[in-house]
Design a protein around this nucleic acid. Structure first.
Lengths: 182, 182
DNA sequence: GATAATTGTTTACTAAAGTAAACATTTTCG
DNA sequence: CGAAAATGTTTACTTTAGTAAACAATTATC
């Protein structure tokens, strides 16, 4: 249970790209607390967890929503997908608790001009995706391509990669990572 | 915050008609813990609250759902009303956190034969209601009446009162209590 | 009406949550 | 490169969550 909370908090925090210390500062708690919660070494009180989430901000109901307590769910309606918005990029994730899972499937939407940021990302595993609409500029290693609806990609994630929507309409795509990266 | 959790737990527990000790037994926690949580004297850990709710059973998401964190909401869609089922009787409450509020408004539905039980209820305040459909037998003090759609009642709650659906179709009504009784 | 069972509360205690401050790494920037 | 800032972790300590057992009060049962 404590571990579940930790995994979920870490997933949310890193997805937003903020550090433990930053979250600690804005929520007014000790950074050691967040470190230990995420490590599953601490069993937070409700009010402590709320205090932390207030810094994101995220209501408790959303933190516990979806399949947080039903990791074995099989079917998900469209409006049940876990949504994580981050600037011009929004993610809709199939399933919420993906630690110990093999696949992370996302429906992503990049607003015009939005992207993963100036710096390329590197992590373990592999990932791939296929575009549904709009255009997406994908850079992997020293290769760059602008994809259109129907185009796809597949690469090992230890190669530096970044995404960017160069068009003037939103870009939708389905992506898959293995293992899930937070 | 701690007090909010306590009020809400107590509201849910008493609505289900179970005692602190019973809930403590089935959830495997000390009854003193439940007493102190409800009194707002204890700041439960998430896993402790989950352990308690597992005895109801109620998922954390539902506990924190609705307007638990937004006590100032004004409008509620039909499907947003807090539903509390109890045997043949179901309650749909307008708003969830009614402590410190003056009114508790419920849409109730009694299945045929269902009622508030053999023993009359007594508590402070006043309550009233109006029938939407079906029949409802209302007993207040030594007076009994069978109400039909459009009929209504109003009494001081310190008079022993009970409700029962004597018909063979569900009975719907809107009730109001002041102050909210849990 | 008296005994027994059940209710919620309080208390002394122990197990653990939460913090401040140090730690070891990594990243940033001149 | 090298100083400086920022990252997550660990540690010693204080506070508090959680428990068992007693308490007082109410309710059930004969």
């Amino acid at each position: 249970m404590d571990q579940d909370i930790g995994y979920r908090l870490k997933a949310i925090r890193t997805r937003l790209g903020i550090s433990q210390r930053h979250l600690a500062r804005v929520s007014g708690v000790a950074n050691a607390t967040i470190s230990q919660i995420e490590a599953g070494r601490l069993n937070p009180t409700v009010s402590m967890l709320k205090k932390v989430l207030d810094g994101i901000p995220m209501p408790l109901s959303e933190f516990f929503a979806d399949d947080f307590e039903q990791a074995d769910r099989i079917f998900f309606r469209a409006d049940e997908l876990t949504e994580i918005a981050d600037g011009g990029v929004s993610f809709r994730q199939v399933g919420a608790n993906l630690h110990n899972r093999a696949i992370q499937l996302l429906k992503e939407c990049y607003q015009p001009g939005a992207g993963t940021g100036r710096h390329a990302i590197t992590h373990e595993g592999e990932e791939c995706g296929i575009l549904l609409s709009g255009r997406l500029e994908v850079t992997v290693g020293d290769e760059t391509a602008v994809l259109r609806a129907g185009d796809a990609y597949y690469f090992r994630s230890d190669q530096p990669h970044q995404f960017h929507n160069p068009g003037n309409e939103p870009c939708e795509l389905i992506t898959a990572c293995s293992p899930p990266s937070f």
